[in-house]
Simulated scan of single mutants.
Amino acid sequence: MTAVVPPPRPAPAPPMVEQMTRTEDGETLNALLWRAGEGWRMVSNAVLGGGIGDRAWVLNAQVAHGYRRTDPDRHLADLARDAGAHGPGVGLMTAADVRAYGGGQDGGVTAVATAGLGVRGWAASWTEPAATAVRPGTVNIVVAVPVPLTDAALVNTVMTATEAKVQALVDAGLDCSGTPTDAVCVAVRRPVPGEETHAFGGPRSLWGARVARAVHQAVTEAARS
């Protein structure tokens, strides 16, 4: 018997990002904002809106290379408010110019990535981390999946996206697994009665494989920008 894979449900609101510009301390800085709206659950390690929960927007804000603020969550919340983003959301930051973002799509999954790779290296380091704060030169990844996932599958997609990021960096000729401050946000649809909630997010599952390919495309494009 041949298995029939149903076509993916198109996402009602894929991450069509808005580009914004602001001036801080005499420096021109940029940001990307995705207004996801209602009906999305997100998992992230972001400084603002991290963890798992309902989220309505994602902000990826460029900050100065000499960033010294000790309240980045408040800073990001203020930037989102000034942009007119409402409700709970996710805030990411990077020293990279976010206008050079990369995008990827596969089977209804959409990914956007920015890559600041000036402080890159391998995750397993045999020296203790420096006591000083690490500069926010970061690989930030936002992924939108147009179906509901269980919490376990949602966490699994973070692993899958991270593995795809490393694969993309190595394929691009970069000798690293990322930077010390990389961040990821995966958004999935909120479950509704009568609709399947998918239980797997690994790279050989239906939706995990699509996440991996979309992230690989996005990071590859961002790393080469």
Rank of each mutant, 00 (worst) to 15 (best):
T162L: 04
A77L: 01
D97V: 04
T150L: 01
P14Q: 00
W126M: 06
C185L: 05
D54M: 00
D175T: 03
T114K: 00
T157S: 05
D78S: 09
E163K: 08
A212C: 03
V188N: 14
V98L: 00
A46K: 06
A164C: 04
P15N: 01
S205E: 02
V147C: 14
T94H: 01
H75N: 09
A124Q: 06
A222N: 07
G102K: 01
V219D: 08
P15A: 01
L32S: 13
W34M: 07
D78H: 11
V139M: 00
A11M: 10
A164P: 12
G89R: 05
N156C: 08
T28Q: 12
T110C: 10
G137M: 04
L174G: 12
L76C: 06
A111W: 07
V17N: 02
A218F: 10
P180Q: 10
G26P: 14
R22K: 08
G116E: 01
A46I: 02
E221D: 03
E38A: 14
R224C: 00
A152S: 11
L29Y: 06
T114D: 01
T181K: 06
G91L: 07
R69P: 05
D171W: 01
L32D: 12
A85W: 02
N30H: 14
G49I: 04
A80E: 10
P12E: 08
N140H: 06
A124C: 04
A209C: 11
A153Q: 08
G66Q: 05
A212H: 13
G49Q: 00
G49C: 02
P148C: 08
S225I: 03
T114W: 02
F200S: 15
A187T: 15
R22W: 11
T21Y: 04
A172G: 11
A46C: 06
G194H: 13
G37T: 12
L92C: 05
D78W: 03
V142F: 14
I52A: 02
P10S: 12
A218W: 09
M42N: 13
V188G: 14
E128T: 13
A164M: 04
G178E: 01
E18V: 08
G137D: 03
S225T: 03
P193V: 09
T23I: 12
L206F: 14
A13P: 09
E38M: 04
N45G: 04
N140Y: 03
D78P: 07
H75P: 04
G137H: 06
V58G: 15
G53N: 00
G103N: 07
P6Q: 08
V17R: 06
A131N: 01
P72S: 03
A115L: 07
E196R: 15
Q167F: 11
D82C: 02
T28H: 11
C185V: 15
P129V: 07
A218E: 09
V211M: 09
L92S: 02
R189V: 13
V192S: 14
A85L: 04
P203G: 01
Q217Y: 08
R120M: 11
P10D: 13
A144L: 06
L154P: 15
A218I: 00
H216Q: 02
V211R: 11
R135N: 11
Q105T: 15
E196I: 12
A115C: 09
A100G: 13
P6F: 07
A218Y: 12
G39N: 10
G194V: 07
A187G: 14
G37Q: 10
R41C: 08
V139Y: 03
T160S: 08
L117S: 10
D82T: 02
A64R: 13
G194F: 12
I52F: 08
D73N: 02
V109N: 14
